[in-house]
């Protein structure tokens, strides 16, 4: 299986007044073609920052300090200063113009809040014209609108509504429009940053279902960032669990839910309410994540970990192959 995206030892720092917070700490992962990778973890664990860093769009005052990101291209992409050759390109080494050609064309991104991610002054059609013309300046406006209508129709929105303004759409419809906008350039990789968090559960289910269909139709590879393990169980092929900027465990969805290895993953799965066991008391993970400006030595989870050992306080565990086929970073399984 071909890898579409390869991240190597990526480090992202936020330089704040109090000090440097390492939001993404030496993360390495790969995403195979047509797979959906779920990035899970609690708030502030660096999953969104990782998603942004893949597109080199870390919000200020964040900075990619080290590491490399590779993307596989299936065709040559011409841009203003040259051509990006087919095959693997290093995103972290591209100049601004080349980066602009890759953004939107090869990697698309969907935001959490559809209410604010559309320009209130532009009609829906103008959004399509904007993005299509940004990558293909010769394209006529009418042709761009036709492409937009096709995409809207495949998302279950009446093509006539292309002339409407964003405020005339509901939240779910807007998220569909956003998905349409990100897919109109036929990207290879789609990064969805909590795409359904601000929607109600019924619309959430619909959108997830549609995204799964679109993934088939457009031959997409996806990274789905969410804190909702239920969403991941439904849509992801593989899941990477993050804690304080580090990857704890990566496994296929089934394995992760059946046989979680890392104590954090186990605790996380314990804290999901189960409708089949109404009498069971909901458990939670005691304590809070550490302050990233003053990181703990060793494994950052050790103060909250029920199975913590002495070595956990001293040494950062490495990712090692676990017995269920995934990888895990925990001293219980070696990795010292």
């Amino acid at each position: 299986m071909k890898d579409i995206l390869r991240v190597e030892d990526l480090i992202v720092d936020y330089v704040t007044r109090r000090g440097v917070a390492r939001a993404v700490d030496r993360v390495s992962l790969t995403v195979g073609e047509n797979r959906t990778l779920g990035l899970a973890g609690e708030s502030g664990c660096g999953k969104s920052t990782l998603g942004r860093a893949i597109m080199r769009l870390v919000p200020y005052p964040g900075k990619i300090v080290d590491g490399r990101v590779f993307l596989d291209l299936d065709e040559d992409i011409p841009y203003e200063n040259g051509v990006l050759k087919k095959g693997e390109v290093e995103i972290t080494a591209l100049d601004e113009e080349a980066l602009r050609a890759v953004r939107g064309k090869e990697i698309a991104y969907i935001f959490q809040d559809p209410m604010t991610s559309l320009n209130p002054m532009l009609r829906i059609g103008d959004h399509f014209v904007q993005i299509l013309q940004a990558h293909n300046p010769e394209m006529e406006k009418d042709e761009a609108l036709e492409r937009g209508k096709e995409v809207l129709e495949s998302l279950g929105i009446l093509p006539e509504r292309i002339g409407d303004y964003p405020h005339q759409f509901s939240g779910g419809m807007r998220q569909r429009v956003m998905i349409g906008l990100s897919l109109v350039m036929r990207p290879r990789l789609l990064i969805a940053d909590e795409p359904t968090t601000s929607l109600d559960v019924i619309v959430e289910a619909q959108i997830l279902e549609e995204m799964a269909q679109l993934k088939e139709k457009f031959n997409l590879t996806m990274i789905l960032i969410t804190h909702n393990l239920g969403v991941l169980a439904q849509t992801a092929d593989d899941i990477a669990v993050m804690y304080t900027g580090r990857i704890c465990e990566v496994a296929t969805t089934e394995t992760l839910f059946e046989d979680p290895q890392h104590p954090y993953t186990q605790a996380l799965l314990e804290s999901v309410p189960d409708v089949t066991k109404p009498d069971k008391k909901l458990s939670w993970i005691p304590g809070a994540p550490p302050d990233l400006v003053e990181p703990l030595p060793g494994c950052m989870f050790h103060p909250r970990c029920p199975k913590a050992m002495d070595i956990c306080k001293k040494k950062v565990p490495k990712l090692v192959q676990s017995n269920n086929g995934g990888v895990v970073a925990c001293h219980l399984y070696g990795g010292a």
Partner: peptide, 17 residues
């Protein structure tokens, strides 16, 4: 700082646009 400007950057829009 609004999301739609960031969305435009992410979709590869030029500064001028």
């Amino acid at each position: 700082e609004l999301a739609y400007v960031e969305a435009a950057i992410i979709m590869g829009a030029r500064d001028r646009d």
